[in-house]
C-alpha cells in the first residue's frame, strides 16, 4: 500500500507530469515543424484578428450556428469541458497535496461545488457515451479508440467522486483515482485527446482562411 502510494504520487506522478507537459510541447513543436517543412504557406495566411474572431465564436456557447442547432449537446460539451479543466485544478484535495509536496497553493473551490462539478463531468460523459451509442452519425464513426478515450477521461472523475464520498472500496478508488488521473494526463498529448492543445490551431487556421481570403464567417 505505502509502496504503491509512494510510486503513484512519486515517480508515476512525475512521469505523468513530464510526459504531459513535454508531450504537449512536443506535439506543438512537431506540428509547427511540419507546417514549416511542408506547408509553410499556412504561416502566410494566419491572421491574429481572424483567428481570435473564429475562436471567440466557437468558445462562447451558442455563438456559432452549429451550437445553436444542437442546444443539448452545446450545454453538455461546454459544461463538460469547463468542469473537466477547472475541477482538477482547483479542488481542495489536489491543492493540499501540491502544498505538501511543493509548498505552494492557490485558491480552492468549495468542496460542495467541486463535487457538483465532478458530477457534471460524469453526467456529461454519460451523455457522450449514450450519444455515441444511439446517434447513428456518431455511432458510424465510433471505433474502439473513441470508447477508450472517453473512458480515460471519465475514469478519474468517477473514481474521484467515489473516493471523495468514501463509498465502496475507499482505498481502491482513491489509488485508482490517482492512477487514472495520471493515465489521462499522459493520454492527452498522445491520443486524440490532443484536441485540447491542437484544436485552437486548426480553428485559428480555418478562421484565418475564412477571414482573410474567403471574407466569410466560419461559424
Amino acid at each position: 500500500m505505502h509502496t504503491a502510494y509512494d510510486m503513484l504520487t512519486g515517480p508515476c506522478a512525475w512521469t505523468a507530469f513530464i510526459l504531459f507537459f513535454g508531450g504537449c510541447l512536443y506535439r506543438l513543436i512537431k506540428m509547427l515543424w511540419l507546417v514549416w517543412k511542408k506547408e509553410r504557406f499556412i504561416f502566410s495566411y494566419m491572421s491574429l484578428r481572424y483567428s481570435l474572431r473564429s475562436l471567440v465564436h466557437w468558445m462562447v456557447p451558442f455563438m456559432a450556428v452549429n451550437w445553436r442547432r444542437q442546444p443539448v449537446l452545446t450545454i453538455a460539451t461546454f459544461a463538460f469541458h469547463l468542469c473537466l479543466i477547472l475541477t482538477p485544478l482547483f479542488v481542495s484535495a489536489h491543492i493540499i497535496l501540491w502544498e505538501e509536496a511543493w509548498q505552494f497553493s492557490w485558491w480552492m473551490l468549495p468542496d460542495g461545488l467541486a463535487d457538483a462539478m465532478t458530477m457534471v463531468v460524469i453526467v456529461c460523459a454519460g451523455y457522450f457515451f449514450i450519444r455515441r451509442l444511439v446517434s447513428p452519425e456518431v455511432r458510424y464513426v465510433t471505433g474502439p479508440s473513441d470508447w477508450i478515450i472517453l473512458s480515460i477521461v471519465a475514469a478519474p472523475f468517477i473514481s474521484g467522486f467515489l473516493a471523495y464520498h468514501q463509498w465502496f472500496a475507499y482505498r481502491f478508488f482513491t489509488m485508482f483515482h490517482i492512477f487514472s488521473g495520471e493515465v489521462m494526463l499522459v493520454a492527452i498529448p498522445f491520443t486524440r485527446l490532443s484536441h485540447m492543445i491542437i484544436s485552437p490551431f486548426t480553428r485559428a487556421y480555418m478562421g484565418s482562411e475564412f477571414g482573410k481570403i474567403r471574407h466569410a464567417r466560419d461559424w
Partner: peptide
C-alpha cells in the same frame, strides 16, 4: 501532405457535428 492532414486526422474527435452541414447526408 503535411501538418494539415496529420493534424486533422489526429484531432477529429468523431463527434459527428459536421453531419448536418452536408446536403448529401
Amino acid at each position: 501532405t503535411g501538418a494539415r492532414l496529420k493534424t486533422y486526422v489526429e484531432t477529429c474527435i468523431h463527434c459527428g457535428l459536421c453531419s448536418e452541414a452536408c446536403h448529401y447526408y
